[in-house]
Simulated scan of single mutants.
Amino acid sequence: MSVNIIILYYSRHGATQALADALAEGILKAGGEPLLRTVTGAGDPASQRDLTINKDELKQCDGLILGSPVRFGHMASALQQFWEQTSISWLKGELEGKPAAVFTSGSSMHSGQESTLLAMGVPLLHHGMVLCGIPYTEPAIQQTVSGASPYGASHVEHGHGKQLTDHEYQAAVALGKRVTVVAEALKTAREQGTL
């Protein structure tokens, strides 16, 4: 059974998009179908490569991974604005019981990455999603000297530009796989009526 996982992100300079691509690889390796989507920013040029998400895609997905560059410890305003317009989906429970994860990129080690990851999880929890992190059994989490944490995939740009380190890449791929495996299990349980 194939599941479709939306990778919904905002990226201005390409670092968050590079993480999205690594997550997509993880989804593919786990047998899922990644759907890379973006949001349009208020005056900010967002990724021109991927399509803008529509609410029907949100309703039909089997899982979602949300990504943003760090904005003073919070997600980009374009993503915040998107979530503020999902009240109907929230009232209908369209995302309830589906897995989710988060990812971010920042310019330095102490740019607010962990608070951004935690803040991005809040609307997902309000929608009733099952939040997935990266466990410490993933070697990249224990070995990284830049991005990636138990809260989600991340990238530190300082000294690397938008190029992911090996550990950042490995952690993102692992998170993509994890969300896909959880999505398959939850979808099977729903179809069998055991959830």
Rank of each mutant, 00 (worst) to 15 (best):
S154A: 05
G128E: 07
S154Y: 06
G32I: 01
K55Q: 11
L124H: 00
I141K: 03
H74Y: 14
S115R: 12
M109K: 13
T38N: 06
V130T: 01
S149V: 01
D166E: 15
F103K: 00
Q80Y: 09
H158R: 15
H167G: 05
K162A: 11
Q113C: 04
H74I: 08
Q170E: 15
Q142Y: 03
Y136C: 07
G93K: 07
Q85Y: 11
P150H: 07
E94A: 13
V130W: 02
L79H: 01
D56I: 10
G97A: 08
S47Q: 04
E138L: 06
T86C: 07
N54E: 15
Q80P: 00
G128F: 09
Q163Y: 03
A76E: 15
Q60I: 03
H160S: 13
T165H: 07
L66Y: 12
A153N: 00
L58I: 11
S115Y: 10
S105T: 03
G63C: 12
S146E: 15
L36A: 14
Q60T: 09
T40G: 12
T144C: 02
V122S: 12
E114K: 08
L66P: 00
S68T: 07
F72M: 15
K98N: 00
I65Y: 04
I53V: 15
F72H: 14
H126M: 08
C61F: 08
M129R: 00
W90G: 00
P45F: 02
S146V: 11
T104Y: 01
S105P: 03
G32K: 00
V156N: 05
S89F: 13
A76C: 07
K162I: 13
L64I: 14
T40D: 08
G73L: 13
V156Q: 09
S149L: 08
Q48S: 14
Q142G: 09
S47R: 02
R71N: 15
H126E: 11
I141R: 05
G152C: 02
A76L: 10
A101F: 11
W90F: 08
P99T: 06
L64D: 10
G43K: 12
R37G: 08
L125A: 14
D50W: 05
E96T: 10
